[in-house]
């Protein structure tokens, strides 16, 4: 064996030996330092209103992917039409990455209020997961605005508010099956089969040797 061969083999063996003591390869957190964190938190663009979500559901918008981050028990009781369940504690499960980090769908996270979905969004964001939104106000807001919309008082009724109210009334009929007068219990949302999401980030395909 030549001297150079021995040196190269020595370096490789040394590198291999060093590797034993190193950690497994995990994704890097993409948010570094408090400034970036504050900036991310203050991005209002992550919110989507219940009205917008309702509109997308009613229009059967194929780009909408609703993700219920509450527990499976809560999900069983009530959820939005077409939503899939990824409980908050399994968000980082690699199997779910296809749903939570892609740019094909508008992924909307929701929970009962805003804060749990906000936290989930921030965690995903900090690992570089893109393309997620948070339904502002969560299911509580959904109930207030879509399932039981309140008619604005006459004195503050502007054309815009009236339009919004009419839309919500229409959405209420769609989601609850309520008659125009009177209410009935919310219709149980249909449980969807898992949508097939193909991760379509800027993933470059490899070549051959």
């Amino acid at each position: 064996m030549k001297k150079l061969d021995k040196i190269i083999i020595g370096i490789l063996l040394l590198g291999g030996f060093v590797s034993i003591f190193l950690n497994d390869m995990l994704p890097y957190p993409h948010i570094k330092g408090p400034e970036e964190l504050v900036y991310a938190v203050n991005q209002e663009g992550r919110y989507i209103s219940t009205d917008e979500v309702a509109k997308m559901i009613m229009e059967k918008d194929p780009s909408l992917l609703l993700i219920d981050i509450r527990s499976p028990q809560e999900y069983e009781k009530f959820t939005l039409e077409g939503a899939m369940n990824i409980p908050a504690d399994s968000l980082m499960n690699p199997a779910n990455r296809d749903y939570l980090d892609q740019d094909v769908y508008t992924t909307v996270l929701f929970s009962n209020g805003s804060s749990a979905a906000d936290e989930a969004w921030l965690m995903l964001k900090s690992y570089g997961y893109e393309g997620n939104k948070v339904m502002k106000g969560g299911l509580n807001e959904w109930y207030r605005t879509i399932l039981k919309p309140i008619k604005p008082a006459d004195e503050e009724l502007t054309a815009e508010l009236e339009k919004q109210y009419l839309f919500r009334k229409g959405a209420q009929i769609y989601f609850t099956g309520a008659q125009i007068i009177g209410n009935s219990a919310p219709k149980k949302a249909s449980k969807p089969s898992k949508p097939i999401v193909k991760r379509k980030k800027k993933e470059v395909s490899g070549g051959c040797g």
Partner: peptide
């Protein structure tokens, strides 16, 4: 197994093959 251990084994295997 841990990735580092696998890498070490792989290096040993390739040196042996040389």
């Amino acid at each position: 197994i841990r990735e580092g251990i696998f890498i070490f084994l792989f290096v040993l295997l390739s040196v042996a093959s040389f």
